[in-house]
Computed example of a mutant assay.
Amino acid sequence: MTTINNSENLIEKVGGIEKAREIIAGAPGNAVIYWPIAKGKFGVYSAGEQNKSDRQIILDDLRTAIAEHDTTDHVTDIRNHVSPSTKVVDL
């Protein structure tokens, strides 16, 4: 199973969350693997076997990474997530 850290790394590997969504949206129905061609360019989809290449991206892993990204609460400032009557002190 993919962890959140691995998910974030996978999203960064493809060029960000928007690029990850583009890859999934452009995938044919039978595609299992996405092979990036070059940075900033689209890649090639394959329904073939996985061979554990560092360059290939398993589309199910990318879908999982996107789902985890969308459900993870990325807290930028704890003061935005506590009761107004709670005093937040920097240590």
Score class of each variant (00 low, 15 high):
Glu12Lys: 15
Gly40Leu: 05
Tyr45Thr: 01
Ala25Lys: 12
Gly16Lys: 02
Asn30Pro: 09
Gly40Met: 00
Ala25Tyr: 11
Gly16Arg: 01
Val32Thr: 13
Glu18Phe: 01
Ala47Gln: 10
Gly16Pro: 11
Pro36Ile: 00
Glu8Leu: 15
Lys41Ile: 01
Ala25Glu: 14
Ala25Thr: 09
Ile23Val: 07
Glu22Leu: 09
Ser7Tyr: 05
Ile33Ala: 02
Ser7Phe: 01
Ala31Tyr: 09
Gly48Pro: 02
Lys39Val: 12
Gln50Val: 02
Lys13Glu: 15
Trp35Ala: 01
Asn5Thr: 11
Leu10Asp: 09
Ala47Asn: 13
Ile24Ser: 02
Ile17Thr: 11
Asn6Met: 12
Tyr45Met: 04
Asn30Thr: 14
Lys39Asp: 13
Leu10His: 06
Ile11Met: 05
Ala31Trp: 03
Glu8Met: 13
Gly26Arg: 07
Asn51Pro: 00
Ile11His: 05
Ala31Ser: 06
Asn5Gln: 15
Val32Asp: 04
Val14Ala: 02
Tyr45Asp: 06
Asn30Lys: 05
Ala38Arg: 11
Ile37Val: 13
Thr3Cys: 08
Gly40Ile: 00
Ala38Lys: 13
Ala47Gly: 10
Ala25Val: 02
Gly29Met: 08
Ser7Cys: 13
Asn30Glu: 14
Leu10Tyr: 08
Gly40Phe: 00
Ala20Met: 02
Asn51Glu: 14
Trp35Pro: 02
Val44Glu: 15
Gln50Ala: 08
Trp35Phe: 14
Glu49Ala: 10
Asn30Gly: 06
Glu18Ala: 14
Glu18Ile: 10
Gly16Ala: 10
Gly16Cys: 07
Ile17Phe: 05
Val32Ile: 13
Ala38Pro: 05
Ile11Val: 13
Ala47Met: 07
Gly29Ser: 14
Gly29Thr: 08
Glu22Tyr: 08
Ala47Arg: 04
Ile37Gln: 11
Phe42Cys: 06
Ala25Gly: 09
Glu12Met: 12
Gly48Asn: 07
Glu18Trp: 00
Ile37Phe: 12
Lys19Pro: 08
Trp35Gln: 09
Gly15His: 04
Gly40Tyr: 00
